[in-house]
Nucleic acid binder design. Sequence first.
DNA 1: TCCTGATCATAA
DNA 2: TTATGATCAGGA
Length: 225
Amino acid sequence: MLPPTTPPADTSDLLARCQQIAGLSLGELATLAGIQIPPDFKRHKGWTGLLIETWLGASAGSKPTQDFPELGIELKTIPINATGEPLETTYACYAPLLIPPGTNWENCNVRNKLANVLWMPVEGERAIPVAQRRIAMPVLWTPTAQQDAALRQDWEEITEMIVLGEVERITARHGKVMQLRPKAADGSVLTDAFGPEGEKIKTRPRGFYLRKTFTGQILRDAFAN
DNA sequence: TCCTGATCATAA
DNA sequence: TTATGATCAGGA
């Protein structure tokens, strides 16, 4: 078995590829793809995501679009424990701090990113050697009306603060299901934002993240019944 | 123990 | 510099 060389033709093709790798270990998939296996993720934080991308035929690169543009689907690998609960929050997307006029929940990037997400849960407990961690069953998710409303509420609260020049007051405690946190190589990276008096300020770049309680519910719902 | 803020690697 | 892929790790 080798990784695909073309993008999936359609959604069922994509799901078929997921089924092919479900149950396999990261070590098996990496070896088959000719990819080196790191001892841990201290210096390889996105390794699992990139490995799964190659096995599903996602277009590489760091474009602010979905992983499967023609299918309108975003891929997210998510580390889980033995109970199937998320071990980490999920990065959604980069958060613009100079928000163009006319931006609203309906047309914002984060909603577009989360409209259709293919969740690929992967065993992530640090006690399990990287090579032995297995891929779980995929979950193709679209927010319910309730979930969309919850995301919208958090987005509007956070975005309003950004627009009002209060980005420095936003902490990870804001937002019931989605939060804003630093997203950069380190604390020295700065980008433009607005301050309280409408002046330009420099601040750490931020990203939107989904809380574990939220993603945990998505996974639980998918396997309920 | 868990969460927030910090951090690591890479591409264009 | 922006943006992708995320996980790390120490203080609350």
